[in-house]
Amino acid sequence: MSDILNHASRAFYEHGFHGTTVRDIARRVGVTVPALYYHHENKEGILVAVLEAAIADLLPRGEAAVAEAGDDPVRQMANLVESIALHVTVRARLAALDSEYRYLSPGVRRGYAELRKRNEELMRSVIERGTEQGVFVVTDPAEATRALLGMLQAISRWYDESGPLTPAEVADRYVGLCLSALGAPTRAGRD
């Protein structure tokens, strides 16, 4: 992530989108406001770049985690949840900014929402396969997907890297929670 985006992400995390000024970002980076505008059209453009940087590797990692599990939906879900939980703990500050996308203009918001949707579709496809195979007990895969992703996204709001849990410990706990919520055997997904 560029120096601009790194400083901007800290400012957005500390003050939110509306509480952060372009002048504050420029001051943190050590450049003038016009120099900042050379790289990004406006504050919204900076937020979009931060959000895209935060989510850029989430889908490829999730896809790799699912592929690594072979044809077993329980292992696929365990791997996918682990990859998401690790993402939102290791990058908690960035992951917490996801909710700021609500401040984007409608056209820009749609583009970012598409990136988020691809991650949602990956999880839903695993849940649907597990339901079809009878290893998940779910009546509405789309609703289950939203519930699990909401629970996972919430980690970034409370996780503290100086706290008692490591990212791996959080991931392990959330794998168990998610598999339990789906009515799946929890040990099989982690062995």
Rank of each mutant, 00 (worst) to 15 (best):
S83L: 10
A181M: 03
R10Q: 11
P34L: 08
Y112N: 04
G176W: 12
A181Q: 01
L86W: 04
L97G: 00
D24G: 10
E68Y: 15
H15N: 13
D98K: 03
E63W: 09
S105Q: 10
H39T: 00
L5V: 01
E68K: 15
R146P: 03
A96P: 05
G19M: 08
F136G: 00
V138Y: 02
A96N: 10
S125A: 12
R190K: 09
P106F: 04
D3T: 15
P60R: 04
A67E: 01
A78K: 05
V138H: 01
S9L: 04
A168I: 07
G107E: 11
A85T: 06
D140K: 12
T131Q: 10
S180Q: 13
N6M: 14
A95N: 00
S99K: 05
G150T: 13
V22T: 12
P185K: 15
V66R: 01
M123T: 09
S125D: 10
A96I: 08
H39F: 01
L115T: 06
P164S: 14
A168H: 09
R10Y: 11
I46W: 00
L59Q: 08
E63P: 06
A78H: 04
A26K: 01
A67K: 01
L165S: 07
T21R: 03
R173V: 14
A78Y: 05
G107H: 11
D160M: 14
Y101Q: 07
P34Q: 07
R157E: 11
F136E: 00
E44V: 05
N42I: 07
A113I: 05
L182W: 01
T166P: 07
I55V: 12
L177P: 09
L36D: 00
L148K: 03
G189C: 06
G111D: 11
R93L: 08
V138D: 00
G176D: 13
S125N: 11
A181I: 01
R116I: 14
I55P: 02
R102C: 14
R61D: 09
G189L: 04
T131L: 11
N79Q: 10
A35I: 13
S9E: 04
E100M: 03
V137M: 15
G130R: 00
A171F: 04
P106Q: 03
A95P: 02
S105V: 10
P60I: 05
S180G: 13
P141W: 03
R10H: 12
L149A: 13
E132K: 10
A95R: 00
L5F: 01
S9M: 05
A144H: 06
Y37A: 03
E169V: 12
M1P: 03
R109V: 07
V175W: 09
P60N: 06
L182R: 01
V74G: 02
R129A: 12
Q76R: 02
E121P: 11
N119M: 15
A154S: 13
G107S: 12
L59T: 07
E121F: 13
V48D: 00
G45T: 02
C178L: 15
V90S: 05
G150D: 12
M77F: 12
A184W: 04
E44A: 08
Q153W: 14
G130A: 02
A142N: 12
E114A: 09
M123N: 07
H87I: 10
P141L: 07
N6L: 11
V48T: 01
A64D: 02
L59E: 06
H39L: 00
T186C: 09
L182Q: 01
R27L: 15
V81L: 14
H15M: 13
V29L: 06
P185Q: 15
